[in-house]
């Protein structure tokens, strides 16, 4: 009986530690969203909540389950977040780049001519192919 109690207590401590840590990292991600200087940098802050925050909170919740269907569902949710969050982050970054979202004025000058690469891209992928397809719509 006492042993059972000790195990439950340990599980609770572990689970709370993980959930609180996850909460801490998610909050830091939120602070980063406000403090960082431009759209592109803020994507990185959002990434903290997506990865470490979500992983820690879900692990903490897994410790509260009993190895049943709920555990499996939580692990599945975790893996879906890991598979989908880079896709949406990339879509945001790409859209920002394509619409000419300005970079922070103190960004490092990297010599990459993103403007011209972008123009090529627009002509090649969307504008070039559109005359035929737009008629169908």
């Amino acid at each position: 009986m006492a042993e059972l109690f000790a195990t439950a207590l340990l599980l609770d401590i572990g689970s709370w530690t993980l959930i609180l840590l996850g909460g801490f990292f998610s909050i830091v991600g939120g602070i980063g969203l406000i403090r960082l200087p431009d759209f592109y940098s803020r994507l990185h802050a959002a990434g903290i909540a997506d990865t470490l925050g979500a992983a820690l909170i879900i692990s903490g919740m897994v410790l509260q389950t009993h190895g049943d269907g709920v555990t499996i569902r939580l692990l599945l949710i975790g893996s879906f977040i890991f598979l989908t969050s880079p896709t949406s982050t990339h879509a945001l970054a790409r859209a920002a780049l394509a619409t000419g979202m300005p970079h922070w004025r103190r960004s490092v000058d990297d010599g990459i001519d993103i403007e011209s690469a972008n123009r090529d891209d627009l002509t090649a992928s969307s504008i070039g192919d559109s005359p035929n397809t737009s008629a169908d719509v």
Binding site: Y40, H44, D50, T87
Partner: peptide, 24 residues
């Protein structure tokens, strides 16, 4: 996708085997 999943680096373009990455 691995680059984007890692905080601090986001892939912005992937074309012809060239990746353009925004790093913090």
């Amino acid at each position: 996708n691995s680059i984007t999943l890692t905080p601090g680096t986001v892939t912005m373009r992937l074309q012809d085997g060239e990746v353009i990455v925004h790093a913090l």
